[in-house]
Design a protein around this nucleic acid. Structure first.
Lengths: 234, 234
DNA sequence: CCGGAAACTTTTGAATACCAAATAGCGCCA
DNA sequence: TGGCGCTATTTGGTATTCAAAAGTTTCCGG
């Protein structure tokens, strides 16, 4: 199989494979419960099994797939419980991230990138793309916090946050932008306590706004254990 | 290269490779800054490069190694900052884990395993092995919380917690066992608020007890960027 | 004698081919 | 119709090979 001139040379191939699969799962193009056939995926993604098998453990660590020894990988079926768990942990991490970022600003760090991300999120109109910008904003806060371990945990969380945001496009209201602006300015002003409180409030408001909608859109519990083969496409 | 009868069949080979490397790094057998040569490691671990390259991305996600494209992998050099970061995030996650576990018990979950882990931690004498038992206790709390996402984030944190505990064997004092006992009983009694507060106090006490010791034992900042080749063994 | 450029070497990234073991699906027989 | 064994697909893993990029060495010129 010719690999042509596809060598991007930037990120490793396995990371691109992981990113592609992650997006396919988040977007629902590969539905929950699908069995992932290695060589079929290799063919579709135009790569050999090697980068694929480097990518799958990562996706499993993020909880997007579930792999059992010699039984292959199955795409995770997201439930309402998953959504609740995302809010739970955002509530633990984002206030800390916001406070840390504010402290860093107070200590002399430059919040320019954060303010730029806020502006970027404002200019983008509503819709599915906006959820990506919201994620960018949160990532920028984490980055500003200069906290390596926090960044790693947030990366793990991030895919699921993006999944969650994609399910609730109506979250992108003017009111939410106000919340973001308040939070960003508290950070940019170097006020850790205020930033922490606003971040917590932001997450909690999101939870209460989203969960009722999500309850109708997600299976409340795990699906049947055997025989499900959603036959993604043909 | 004969693989003999080594087929354990239990966990995948790549997971065992990841675990072995993780332990080698935590224990210092592979010192920070070491360059990891793939085929050399393959030879030493008696596996081919494939399970190795499935393991390396996992270790990188956990922050034990740092891989750059076409430049190979280097073992992370732990600094005092890393220790502070571990305490930071334990402080965010463990109180939540303890509260969740207590809520689960109040809702009818059985804390028998948790109590058993506490007893197991008590019977083990002091020393380096005890740090493993402490980790087991924390893992048991997380397990009891029945929170998938929390479990994933905790797993990410866990390796670094084990690294940290191994550096401070003097932490294993009778006083710390009292703290554990209080916490476990609060959970077993189904008291979320008490468990949350005790978990936070436990982490903070550990921070204050450990950091002075660690300050003398760890490099305060990242090492020289180039040319370091600690030549682990020959 | 020192600095820079070119050639060489090492190592990673990736592909291909192959084998063994286990699961799972299938058909066969009672 | 139900249980049992067989085949076949698939995963886990190894070995080998190739290309490209880093790193290293050497060599030449200033």
């Amino acid at each position: 199989m010719e690999q042509a001139e596809a060598a991007d040379l930037g990120p490793g191939l396995s990371e691109r494979v992981a990113a592609a699969l992650r997006e396919d799962i988040i977007s629902g193009r590969i539905p929950g419960g699908s069995k992932l056939n290695e060589r079929e995926l290799s063919a579709r993604l135009q790569v050999s099994r090697i980068p694929l098998r480097e990518a799958l453990p990562l996706l499993e660590a993020e909880g997007f797939i579930h792999s059992e020894a010699r039984r292959g990988s199955v795409v995770h079926t997201f439930t309402l419980r998953d959504a609740v768990e995302v809010f739970d942990l955002r509530l633990q991490l984002e206030p800390f991230a916001a406070a840390s970022a504010a402290r860093r600003v107070a200590a002399g760090a430059d919040p320019a990138n954060l303010l730029a991300a806020l502006e970027y999120a404002r200019t983008g109109e509503s819709g599915h793309q906006a959820s990506g910008r919201n994620s960018d904003l949160h990532e920028e806060i984490v980055h500003l916090a200069s906290h390596d371990l926090l960044r790693r945990l947030s990366n793990l969380l991030n895919g699921r946050v993006r999944w969650l945001f994609r399910l609730t496009p109506e979250r992108d209201t003017p009111g939410m932008w106000e919340e973001h602006a308040e939070l960003v300015h508290a950070i940019a002003d170097g006020q850790p306590a205020l930033a922490e409180a606003l971040a917590g409030a932001h997450v909690e408001r999101g939870r209460h706004a989203s969960l009722p909608h999500l309850a109708g859109r997600l299976p409340s519990e795990a699906p049947a254990r055997k025989g499900r083969r959603p036959r993604s496409q043909d």
